[in-house]
Amino acid sequence: MHMLVERIMTSPVETLHVNDTIHEAMNMMSRLSIRHIPIVDDDDNLAGIISDKDVNLALPSIASKDADLSLDLELGKIMRQQVTTCHPLDFVEEIAKDFYHFAIGAIPVMRGKKIVGIVTQKDMLNTFLELTGIKEPGSIIEIDIKDRMGVIFDIGKVFKDLNIKIVSISIYPDADKKDHKIIVLRIDAMNPLIAIEKLKESGFNVLDPSEMS
């Protein structure tokens, strides 16, 4: 997934100042339906980040009498100062590891000390859906192959000869067989039977749905 962060980030980003209050953060989160706000200092440099969880932790319980006081608390006092950031030219798969390892919800995108965008878990999921999702109708064929040079060419030739377009290809390692891979083809055909027959004639092991999991 050598897609760049700049393709999936949200930009420009709404920010708040270190002297803004929890009250303002709550309003912004609810108005924009977001859960993370980068916090900047007087020079507009990134100073920290707050999440809805940080806000909740800073608030007293419903029963407390000091609710108003807490709402006036400055964000500089409760923000997280250790922020995981990235650059617009980072690979999406690299920041996916950050999301996974640090269990974080959003990563600000920086050029130097200036914030130029933000990527959230939701953006990551959307990107994944875009990669696996479909825009054109098609049937699925799965082939179990022993990995070798030219195998994609050989499969491609079968479809070229049949005048059937391949819409997308994904390749997974076979969990059970060493050196084997599963090739998943989405083809532009309602009737996959002709292609399946040709693939079998050419020696390919086409998986039947009853043996796929």
């Binding site: 479909i134 098609g138 699925i140």
Partner: peptide, 9 residues
């Protein structure tokens, strides 16, 4: 389901 069958949607 579109797991195997056309049109996939």
């Amino acid at each position: 389901t579109g797991r195997y069958l056309f049109p996939g949607t």
